[in-house]
Amino acid sequence: MKLSKFFMQSAAAAALFGLALATPSFAQDKFPSKDITFVVQAAAGGASDRTSRAIAAELEKDLGVNVIVENRPGATGTVAFAHVAEQPADGYTIGFGPVEFAIAEHIGYDFNRENYTYLAQVMDSPVVLAVRADSPYNTLEEFLEAAKTEELSVSNSGAASAFAAATFTLSKMTGAKLTGVPFDGGAPAVAAALGGHVDAVTAGAGETATAFADGTLKVLAIFSDKPHPMFEGVKTAKEQGYDLTFGAWGGVYGPAGIPDDVKEILEESIRKAVSSQTFLDAITPAGILPVYRPGDEWKAFVDAEAARYGEMLAQ
């Protein structure tokens, strides 16, 4: 019987396979001695996933063990955050911590920033404000001035995101009448601006770069400390007199209580990864800037951001 032959062959393969699995990995005292799991809070394919996989690849080279990327999307990332918090604090489970670390607690999620060990910030994707090429506005000033007399609509990539907060804060700060229109992701938000359905868009640098390069979108301001290499000639909001920075930043974290020696090894390895050329090549074309802050500094930054978003989202 053919079927049974198929089964016998599979069984043989299984035996071989089992043998391969059973090969003992020798336990070592020094960290790391086994595979590391890197939890990503978004589905495969986005900016968080891309950055995480680039970091994981570098960590793999540096630490000499497998770093397995695990996507656990859902609930603004808090599914992944909660999962990591429940894992043993031995450094073998780490994850990607995005700007939602500062936002989640303010929009009704069960999330506590103190439940984590902060290893390092690795990236920042600044928010930009852009209008269609044929729009009458050429500077942030002109745009806000116009919004004082008539209501202008500004699309963004989603409710209660850093992008939505940027619009909201801008209008609160200046008294301009801006209506935030949340879309399901950055790309449709940009498309709405390109199609002239909204007056402007706040989106990530990467999402607007294509249209900017093609000349179909004018970028009025970039909400970052320093100019962005992809947007030549675009001034920061600060340079135009509005001291505001917004970014979809991210870093690497683990469960609270990772021992100091393990933490040091990871921090050092992440620092090397962020400055590596492969990492740069993987993230900069997508408009993401490499930003390194060591754990303690990043934690302070997260706390400051959380306080800021708390004010912005409380209304």
Partner: peptide, 27 residues
């Protein structure tokens, strides 16, 4: 032709193309 992903597969594809130095868009 727009650089705007037509579906979720294309959203991932755009990310890869940008890394390869291909800038989708009318140009």
């Amino acid at each position: 032709a727009l650089g705007i992903p037509g579906d979720s597969v294309m959203a991932v594809m755009i990310g890869s193309m940008i890394i390869w130095g291909i800038q989708p868009g009318p140009s």
